[in-house]
């Protein structure tokens, strides 16, 4: 079950403070990295919600992210819709797409579920790729950013846009934490741990799964709409299945089922990639090796491992204080 522990709160606040401080002190390229890390964090939080807590390992989150990006880009570029409206539409359309995927795949499990989400993600990718109106494989250029001049702000200013992206990531975390701490979030964990028993006590499992997918999809779509504004350009590459694979890697790398881990993972991933890519063109070999080591080392991930150790000490202290508990680190034991 999700618990907003002190460690979680402190880590999130520390990253938030660091991101803001870095945004004000770094150059143009540094700010681009901040935005990239923020959007990746949003996407990773969105995936961790259903994968880490709901046990649904989705390989279509890149596609949902892309649906958000394309909805925003398509509406603003092709139909000149008000960017705020397009922004809201991006979130709604992504949520609807995710709901459909979640509903249809709800009966499948394990590798079949992974493959089914892959199939739906690829269908979205192909539809966009083959759609000439959406620019086909060339994509769409000239995507505007939100017009915030009435507020006296300007998102074409990279400091302001970076802060906006960081704020969106923080809000995404808060929203996901809120949902996971609600009755719905408890139910979601119940499904991961024992779906059959949830049915036996009367739960309409597919509906919970589909709604969880929709909430997760809304966050992914939000990330996509921000990513489209950052580069002011969208292409089908956003939706390729390797993007979904990468997000899953980020979640694992940071710590699946911890909600904070994905943020840590996204930040480390983006900056590490930048550092390594500037030294050698072979970033992927490093990424792949790091992922393999993470899994072989137990799969808890960077933040997950720390939380595991802190949590174990806490439970030991509780046990020593006389609380009848023989538990040892149960929080993240069974994600494998």
């Amino acid at each position: 079950m999700f618990r907003q522990s002190l460690l979680k709160t402190l880590t999130v606040l520390a990253i938030l403070a660091a991101a803001i401080a870095y945004t004000f002190t770094t150059g143009y390229f540094g700010k681009e990295l901040v935005i990239e890390a923020a959007t990746l964090a949003i996407l990773a939080i969105s995936l961790d919600m259903i994968a880490g807590y709901g046990g649904m390992i989705s390989l279509c989150h890149g596609a949902i992210f892309g649906v958000g990006a394309y909805t925003y880009a398509g509406l603003t570029v092709l139909f000149e819709v008000n960017p705020f409206l397009a922004f809201a539409a991006a979130i709604v359309v992504s949520a609807a797409f995710a709901f459909a995927v979640g509903a249809v795949t709800a009966r499948t499990h394990g590798i079949f579920f992974i493959m089914a989400t892959l199939a739906f993600g690829q269908m979205a990718y192909v539809l966009v790729f083959e759609n000439k109106a959406l620019g086909g494989d060339d994509g769409l250029a000239g995507v505007p950013r939100l017009d915030v001049s009435p507020l006296g702000l300007d998102f074409n200013n990279s400091v302001q846009f970076a802060l906006f992206a960081v704020a969106a990531a923080a809000l995404s975390y808060a929203a996901a934490a809120w949902v996971l701490r609600s009755g719905f979030g408890r139910t979601l964990v119940g499904i991961r741990v024992n779906e059959a028993r949830m049915k036996a006590v009367g739960l309409t499992v597919w509906r919970t799964k589909a709604i969880a997918f929709a909430i997760s999809g809304a966050l992914a779509g939000l990330g996509g709409a921000i990513a489209a504004q950052q580069t002011m350009f969208v292409s089908p590459e956003l939706m390729a299945w390797m993007v979904s694979g990468t997000v899953l890697m980020v979640v694992i790398f940071g710590g699946i089922g911890t909600l904070v881990g994905p943020i840590v993972g996204a930040v480390v991933w983006v900056f590490l990639k930048h550092e390594i890519s500037s030294a050698t063109p072979y970033w992927h070999i490093v990424a792949g090796t790091v992922l393999i080591i993470t899994i072989v080392a137990g799969g808890r991930g960077l933040y997950g491992q720390i939380e595991y150790m802190v949590e174990r000490r806490r439970l030991k202290r509780l046990a020593a204080a006389g609380v009848p508990s023989t538990a040892t680190g149960r929080e993240d034991e069974t994600h494998a």
């Binding site: 390992i57 394990g110 992927h284 792949g288 992922l291």
Partner: peptide, 20 residues
Amino acid sequence: AGPMNQVLVTLGLIFVFVDI
């Protein structure tokens, strides 16, 4: 180790292979 870990480890292998 379960399908997720298998998918991830072999996904990592893809990354490594492509760069090799």
